[in-house]
Design a protein around this nucleic acid. Sequence first.
DNA 1: CTGTTAGCGCCTTCAC
DNA 2: GTGAAGGCGCTAACAG
Lengths: 348, 348
Amino acid sequence: MSLPDRPLPTLRDVANAAEVSVGTASKVLSGASGVSEARAQRVWDAARRLGYRRNGIAADLRRGRPSSIGFVLPDLTNQFFVDIARALENHALEHGYRLIMAHADEDPAREMERIRFVMSGQVAGMIIIPCRGYEHAIDEVRECNVPLVMADRVDDSFPADTVTTDSHAATFDGTVHLIGLGHKRITFLVNTLDLVNSRERADGYVDAMKRAGLDSYIRVVECGMTAAEIHASTLDVLSNALRPTALFAGGNVTTLGALRAIRDAELRLPEDISLLSFDDAPWMSVLRPYLSSIRQPVEAIGHAIWQLMLKLLNGERNAPVHLSFKAELLVRESTAAAPAVQAVLDGA
Amino acid sequence: MSLPDRPLPTLRDVANAAEVSVGTASKVLSGASGVSEARAQRVWDAARRLGYRRNGIAADLRRGRPSSIGFVLPDLTNQFFVDIARALENHALEHGYRLIMAHADEDPAREMERIRFVMSGQVAGMIIIPCRGYEHAIDEVRECNVPLVMADRVDDSFPADTVTTDSHAATFDGTVHLIGLGHKRITFLVNTLDLVNSRERADGYVDAMKRAGLDSYIRVVECGMTAAEIHASTLDVLSNALRPTALFAGGNVTTLGALRAIRDAELRLPEDISLLSFDDAPWMSVLRPYLSSIRQPVEAIGHAIWQLMLKLLNGERNAPVHLSFKAELLVRESTAAAPAVQAVLDGA
DNA sequence: CTGTTAGCGCCTTCAC
DNA sequence: GTGAAGGCGCTAACAG
């Protein structure tokens, strides 16, 4: 390569070259005031000439206040989390913070390890979307007294700031929509009931069914975290003699798995079966029929998380705040009236 | 909150509590050998008791060798990049490196800014998937003498290690496939020709067309980076009197946009028009027809990038290495024989 | 084996 | 305005 491993110039080098003291150079380069025009210019020149780069890490160390934020998320495969990551990344960088991302891959052990590791990099705050069984992991953060905001897979009982979607309301509404279409045998597909928000989603469905007097039709099936597992479980559901006339998929990935199963079972959407998806995604728009779905306000959520974090960063430590956002039901083409034949067979 | 802002215990605190010197404590806690069982145990105990966390940043500073790797990618919306991110994150953490991600959002100015910012955090190396007009940005990195690996949107002329997919071969093969199906009016949809790899993809198509003597049928249309822009351009292409019988979409996002346009134009896939997608994605499997696509070996690419980075990290600085991976053509249902009627109209 | 010491690159009083 | 000095938390020589 071209250059020998000449070490990067330091603040001292710049100061020497500019013939000022380190203190003065520091003031100039960190944008503080109180230095004469002339010397400031000399410093800038020297810095440019030497190709000086400020060592942000050393500055952090000295200041005792890091400028990185840790962000741990459970699954990069899930568009919803990625969207949040994207929003956070923007907010953070806008405010002069680096975002250190780590992904737990839905594995609690790994999550714990990653949280520790990220925190060893001295972060000013942590934002976490947990995976199941996260309690220990969170303790780590709290013990360190690091500002913490949790999102999505938490409930209001959590002793830290949280931002969530009102899952119960969302699935309640969705289920009402399905019922309004004449469906009775509605099956709710959920990844796992170990997750608070998944539980809430299931509850919303259950409550709506009950309110409609459809108690005996309630079916909640846990079908796993991966598309493959979900595919299998759904196939199972569909092969049942009395198969449901509508499927309510409890999330992004679940929808994908369910869709594959529907395809494999050679069922027509929505003539044979209706499908409602919790979580919206760009690709849903190119499906025929266009998927009906529930859209979480990702941008708003990302923004809220960041606002909460900012407050914490500024030292405002009040009682934990729990923000909840309303999701939007997008009725499109994959949810239609229940098949007439089935209604007859039901003898209802 | 519960605890007052008691500062975190430092190495010295631990050493004091364990009644050993800082040096000894350091050795124990950083896993070095040469400390007696008994004292080591005392140190561990004290550390646990005080809730000590090693300050990795300070350690880096002292060692003069950071343990973070910067990763700048252009678009978190593109599944392909996210997959690479995921792979890199795993490799990095496995080797004790933090991955600092930043996303440029396809904006060169922003990319430059983010590269600078990430680097101000003292990274041991940089991995970059650039957006167009990235040359200046890269100079920044090279001047700092930071190990650099570039991927995807680069060619072999680049003076640093690179990892890419053999785009030319991939689109050449894809085009041959389409031609073999009887298509002549094949249009190649590309985001922008400002990107090397997009250019190569287009070239592969062009060369295949030429070899088949279909020079006069060659149509490459630049349709922009966002799904919306692509949607519009494709709609335009499809409204043409002599519309193509096959569309070759040059990437992930392009495919999505094209699909929307096909849907809006009320064309049947693949009866009216065939579609071949560069880049495979999970959602493609739930489309009817299942999309034919070109799959890049993401895992292999991610792994290769990391291997190159590791070598650089270990001080091996040879001439730049350029790795190229072969993509796989997955023939599925969206590519079929050209419509007979059209063939007649062609008068061929 | 163990303790002491001298910084890593930077910021921040504090005198001048 | 300006420069000198001390130290953030840690590690890597060294002495003992």
